[in-house]
Design a protein around this nucleic acid. Structure first.
Length: 157
DNA sequence: GTCGGAAAGA
DNA sequence: TCTTTCCGAC
């Protein structure tokens, strides 16, 4: 295939995540955005990194991630317990879901994130598509189950 | 560890 | 609206 192993290290991070905000709604830095930011930098690979399937990441050092997040938000008492609660609120929004059975492991719903935040994105220029193709190119490989809860959330927005 | 309700904060 | 804080339940 076209992709070599070295490119795999940094590929799972499309440019759209750089954009500070898009749709009218986001003001402050968002947690999922911050996570993506850490994921994008090699210097944090011992703290948090992509692992497993596309979109899946592992928090190797929960305390450190919480500390960094607390620093960014000026919340000196941040910890993983509270950070993870914020992540759990993403489940219904279908930005993230839990990879069950794997400790500290979550998975991004890139399709959802893109659709919601960057509807006019030129997909062709994003490595996201490339990777998707690499995995077999199924249309929506990482959709969270659509529970009634989710639908409720969807309607509310 | 993980989940999700409840309430308060920015 | 998106967390932050607290916490009982599993």
């Amino acid at each position: 295939m076209i992709l070599n192993t070295s490119s795999l290290n940094c590929i799972a991070f499309p440019d759209w995540a750089y954009k500070p905000e898009s749709s009218p709604g986001s003001r402050q830095i968002q947690l999922w955005h911050f996570i993506l930011e850490l994921l994008q930098k090699e210097e944090y690979q011992s703290v948090i990194s992509w692992q497993g399937e596309y979109g899946e990441f592992v928090i190797k050092d929960p305390d450190e991630v919480a500390k960094l997040w607390g620093l960014r938000k000026c919340k000196p008492h941040m910890n993983y317990d509270k950070l993870s609660r914020a992540l759990r609120y993403y489940y219904n929004k279908r930005i993230l879901h839990k990879t069950k059975g794997k400790r500290f492991t979550y998975k991004f719903n890139f399709s959802k994130v893109v659709l919601v935040n960057y509807p006019l994105l030129d997909m062709a220029s994003s490595p996201f598509l490339l990777q998707n193709h690499f995995n077999g190119g199924s249309a929506a490989p990482d959709c969270s189950p659509v529970t009634p809860e989710v639908r409720k959330e969807e309607r509310r927005k």
